[in-house]
């Protein structure tokens, strides 16, 4: 699905990613953890194609294509989805309208006819149940005046509607209470298939109680410094990041 080789990226001349190597196969869930400022969100942004970040070295292969060659919208149309840490407000544009525009552009890219209103509504009703989202919320201006939980649920709802192949959840757990966390995680789990992959970027282990990862990677100073299975996350929860930092810093000193 995704092969990241020796990825280096910077923003405004400052190096953030310093050689990431990662391979993700269909059906796998990978958690990316790490202390603040380690480059977790940068990795998510670079994968989605955010222009402020400059890729200075390395390559990313996605479904046999050169991902870095694709515009952000083409990446989305090829099935890459980013659930934003801070979903953006768009006044006057309802989630429904927003998604209709997105879906029809994706369908056009794939050479399909636009979705008719009835099929769109049917799909919407069905996916709404997944994240226990209310119709009224979808008619409101996108993310405007939404609570933290509503924003994140809306992200997962969009994910459900767009049916991506590779989903990147960027700190989706931040700002969620325990009930909202459960709802969001349930949604993600229900959407999982043997064909789709998920990258969960998170600071804390608690989300991983619900979305169980196949692999856990620790990012520090722009590199993956440790990988393991779900037990690594538990270990981090217990011991914090300091022991890893020490390990790395002694090794490179």
């Amino acid at each position: 699905m995704l092969k990241i080789k020796n990825l280096h990226a910077s923003i405004e001349g400052k190096d953030i990613l310093n050689g990431i190597n990662l391979e993700i196969k269909p059906g796998e869930v990978h958690a990316i953890m790490g202390p603040n400022g380690s480059g977790k969100s940068t990795l998510a942004s670079v994968l989605a194609g955010r222009e402020e970040y400059e890729v200075t070295d390395g390559e990313i292969e996605y479904l046999g294509k050169d991902l870095l060659d694709l515009s952000p919208e083409d990446r989305a149309r090829e099935g890459v989805f980013l659930a934003f840490q801070y979903p953006v407000e768009i006044p006057g544009v309802s989630t429904t309208n927003f998604l209709k525009t997105a879906i029809n552009q994706i369908r056009e890219y794939r050479g399909q006819e636009p979705l008719d209103a009835v099929s769109f509504l049917t799909t919407m009703k069905e996916k709404m149940k997944l994240v226990e989202i209310d119709q009224a919320l979808l008619s409101r201006s996108l993310n405007e005046g939404f609570s933290g939980g509503e924003k994140k649920r809306n992200e997962i709802f969009q994910m459900a509607m767009l049916e991506p192949k590779l989903s990147i959840l960027d700190e989706t757990d931040s700002g969620l209470d325990i009930d909202a966390l459960r709802i969001v995680a349930n949604g993600v789990n229900k959407l999982k298939t043997s064909e789709t992959s998920t990258i969960v970027v998170t600071h804390y282990q608690r989300l991983l109680d619900y979305i169980v990862p196949d692999f856990v990677h620790v990012l520090y100073k722009g590199k993956i410094v440790k990988s393991g299975d779900k037990n690594l996350a538990l270990e981090l929860e217990e011991k914090g990041y300091d022991w890893i930092k020490e390990e790395v810093d002694t090794a490179t000193a």
Binding site: G49, P87, A102
Partner: peptide, 16 residues
């Protein structure tokens, strides 16, 4: 830029 990126990330081109 944030608003535009949010849209393009969902498959909507920049003009749209």
């Amino acid at each position: 830029e944030d608003q535009i990126f949010y849209c393009t990330q969902r498959g909507i081109d920049e003009e749209s």
